[in-house]
Design a protein around this nucleic acid. Structure first.
Lengths: 130, 130
DNA sequence: TTTACTAACTTGCAAAATGCAAGTGTACAA
DNA sequence: TTGTACACTTGCATTTTGCAAGTTAGTAAA
């Protein structure tokens, strides 16, 4: 930990170009497996992906278990701590959509967030938690 | 730009260990000058600080002008685009405070954010704009 | 039980980013 | 014209990342 600043604390977890993309894949893309993360369009290298999954798991943001149907696979999912990053992601999406056209954001996302932010977050969360 | 994903877009601006700390200093610490950013407790190197200020300015998140009282100084401030990152910062602070005790967060910050998030953001923003 | 296949992960090496110490350029004041 | 303050650059060592190739382990079919 570099300081007792909460922003600095958060950046120690996901202050890099890849960690939040893995979390994005878990939250919005329904991905759970190494190979799925690897196939994302940004093109993460396998060694970086491996190190990020380890770090996120060590941080308590994700957890993993051997996939019962195929034991060479590991299944990753968000913990409560990871799910609580959804609001951060939502604000980042809203910011990006406001300042850059042509991004992959639903037309009504901004107005939905503005109108009932809590509901938007709850819809995302409940799809993951069940 | 690595993809049309809004998260990836945002990370292209501040997906590193330092950019958001500069923005934090502008938003919460009332800092405006190179030397002030440099003196933050995380200890940013001068070459990194210089490159981050340039990048943030090129991105339209901050702007600078020569400080009239002393022309060797440059004064940095947030643009509208930069001010709109306040909600992202607020969510990051809330997340960190929830999961790590002992951080420099006001006792009632979490309850204030939960109770009237918009008002918290507006107070922070108006201190900078007004 | 050998062979082939798949998935996760590691390794080796090159390239890029970062950290650190020292130095440069410019405005200003004595 | 000397000294000082401030922003910023440079050179070099260290660390992190990117890429290609390999390794290990479970599974399934011959």
């Amino acid at each position: 930990m570099r300081s007792d600043c909460p922003i600095s604390y958060a950046l120690d977890f996901f202050g890099d170009k890849w960690s939040l993309l893995v979390i994005r894949d878990l939250v919005f893309e329904g991905k759970s497996f190494f190979k799925e993360f690897q196939q994302s369009k940004e093109g993460i290298a396998t060694n970086i992906l491996s190190s990020r999954l380890k770090k996120l798991e060590a941080s308590g943001i994700i957890e993993s278990r051997v996939y019962p149907q195929l034991k060479t696979k590991k299944e990753y999912k968000l913990t409560a701590k990871g799910l609580d990053l959804i609001p951060v992601l939502v604000e980042m999406i809203a910011w990006s959509a406001k300042y850059q056209e042509g991004l992959a954001v639903h037309d009504d996302f901004l107005s939905k967030v503005e109108h009932d932010r809590e509901a938007v977050i709850e819809v995302i969360r409940s799809r993951l938690v069940g």
